[in-house]
Design a protein around this nucleic acid. Sequence first.
DNA 1: ATACTATTTGACTAAATAGTCAAGTAGGAC
DNA 2: GTCCTACTTGACTATTTAGTCAAATAGTAT
Lengths: 106, 106
Amino acid sequence: MPQNHIRLDLVANIFKALGHPIRLGILEILGTREKCVCDIVSALQADTSNISKHLSVMKNAGILGDRKEGLKVYYRVIMPCALNFVDCAGKAALSAIEDRREALAG
Amino acid sequence: MPQNHIRLDLVANIFKALGHPIRLGILEILGTREKCVCDIVSALQADTSNISKHLSVMKNAGILGDRKEGLKVYYRVIMPCALNFVDCAGKAALSAIEDRREALAG
DNA sequence: ATACTATTTGACTAAATAGTCAAGTAGGAC
DNA sequence: GTCCTACTTGACTATTTAGTCAAATAGTAT
């Protein structure tokens, strides 16, 4: 494959976009429904411009899509497997914590 | 859940560790087998200290485990679903490229 | 036109990450 | 002990990313 590094860059970009706790929080809030920016902001009690930038990171990575209706912009997950990732990584993280606890307990 | 942000930080850390093309390359080289650092370095034709640092990022995130045998250190994937992620994100990235191509073609 | 709301963008600083090279550690051979 | 190989770490610079605040944009209402 000649453009292997292009492919890896794209995939890396997806994971980079998932690699921030606020963005994971956004993903959990969205789930399978669309939400406007204002809903996300109030759910996370965060700064609007900050959330807006996180949303655009995920949109650029191809994880989210958006739609404008009146004054509001609605975002939704358009890469369904991203939700699976978070789920599975969450379990992996938890079991890693468990393993560490067991290791410390001996 | 009181320690929600701790959980999200851990998960974010996993994705951050996947969010680099070289680290994805390492993951593809490893697959389900263990390889020594020297094998990875020669497969990727990269700098040893650079690869060593990428390996430790993935190890700290809980994605890789390692084992020393003589002079060599063998790394392996200990978070199997990470391999699925890469696979699925790769397909998602490809279909995003397709969509863009179609959109441009009209 | 003004005023108001929802969202994005620009400018900036602070912090994290990546790459490189030199130096350090650890194990094996002699 | 010395030397060599495999790997890791430290120091450093360059680049990227994150957060914040002010300003800009876009739509609605009056």
